[in-house]
Simulated scan of single mutants.
Amino acid sequence: MNKLAPELKGVKSVAIAGHIRPDGDCVGSCMAIYNYICDNFPNIEADVYLEEIQNVFSFIKNTDNIISVFDSDEEYDLCIVVDCSDLNRLGDAKKYFETAKKTICIDHHISNQSYADINYIIPDASSTCELVYGLLEESCIDKAIAEAIYTGMVHDTGVFQYTNTSEKTMNIAGKLMSKGIEFSKIIDDTFNKKSYVQNQILGRALLESILLLDGKCIVSGLTRKEMVFYGVTHQDFDGIVSQLRVTEGVECAIFLYETGNHEFKVSLRSSDKVDVSRIAYYFGGGGHVRAAGCTMAGTMHDVINNLTSQIELQLLQEKICD
């Protein structure tokens, strides 16, 4: 697939969906495609299915049209899935993929197993939004679409500081800036700014963190009881694991929070020597070499022990190779 437009010929209805707990890249890529279709294919009925998004992304055009209740049984000519490495990560939106006449997956996760009819998967890309940019005609990318794409790129590159940032990434960012977007405001409002309670929970996560594996691994976590005490949800945890990772001497950071009885959502970040996508995949998750995640069962102690054993294996292999 070189461009998205040819795949839309003869299509009357399109469902667009992304992964559960949508982040900036997921929201940005969904809305960029949705706005592109609305602007250039008025005869196509398009719907976006996403779980409730964070308020910081509400400035993106047409986010108020997102459908977050998946109770309809509508069947679509085409279902476009973005930023989703595994079909099950679509959550309740999975049924629209399964009943669609044709499916497309656009993704940059190395763990993606190409589950759609058409798969546009490039693991080296900084973000799914970067891929979406290449699939749209540049003449059709207006300010609103540029805002959506730029937002996703900012969030998946940590404001262009992660190793997935390439020369191509920066060139695309420059072209998006030329569309008149308020690029510094997007970074500040959606990435840097934190609420008071977010700063509280970040402070607690840092204060309660522990160093393992001779200081090469740092871990912090929250129980459901603690989340209730602070009145926080998973949407308030953005940036915690990345802040843990920049601790001097740390090769891998783990942040986990309880989602159910003896069930934890795990976020992993690495600096240089650990491929966290391998670890996440081993435990049924996925992601990228430097950023990945999974859901694990057991006590917090059990989960941490299982994760660090896999991290230690990679560190030992790295030491042997050196």
Rank of each mutant, 00 (worst) to 15 (best):
N2T: 10
E7T: 01
E7K: 11
K9F: 08
V14S: 00
R21T: 09
G24L: 02
G28S: 03
S29Q: 00
D39M: 04
P42Y: 14
V48R: 01
V48I: 09
V56N: 04
V56M: 12
D71S: 12
E75H: 10
L78G: 05
L87R: 04
N88L: 15
Y96E: 08
T103G: 06
I104S: 02
C105R: 01
I106N: 05
H108M: 04
I110A: 10
S111M: 02
Q113V: 08
A116E: 05
T128P: 15
T128R: 06
G134C: 04
L136N: 00
E137P: 14
C140R: 15
A148W: 13
Y150N: 10
Y150D: 09
T151V: 10
M153D: 06
H155I: 07
F160W: 13
Q161W: 08
N164W: 08
T165M: 09
K168V: 15
K168W: 03
G180R: 02
K194P: 04
S195C: 01
Q198C: 07
I201V: 12
L206P: 00
S209T: 00
I210M: 08
L211R: 02
L213Q: 03
C217R: 13
I218G: 15
V219P: 00
L222N: 08
R224L: 15
F229K: 15
Y230I: 01
H234A: 15
G239V: 02
V246Y: 12
A253F: 05
I254D: 01
L256R: 08
Y257R: 06
T259E: 07
N261L: 13
N261M: 13
F264L: 09
S270V: 06
R278G: 09
G286V: 13
G287M: 06
A291Q: 11
G293N: 06
T295G: 07
T295W: 05
M300T: 05
H301P: 11
V303R: 02
L307S: 04
T308E: 15
Q317P: 04
K319A: 10
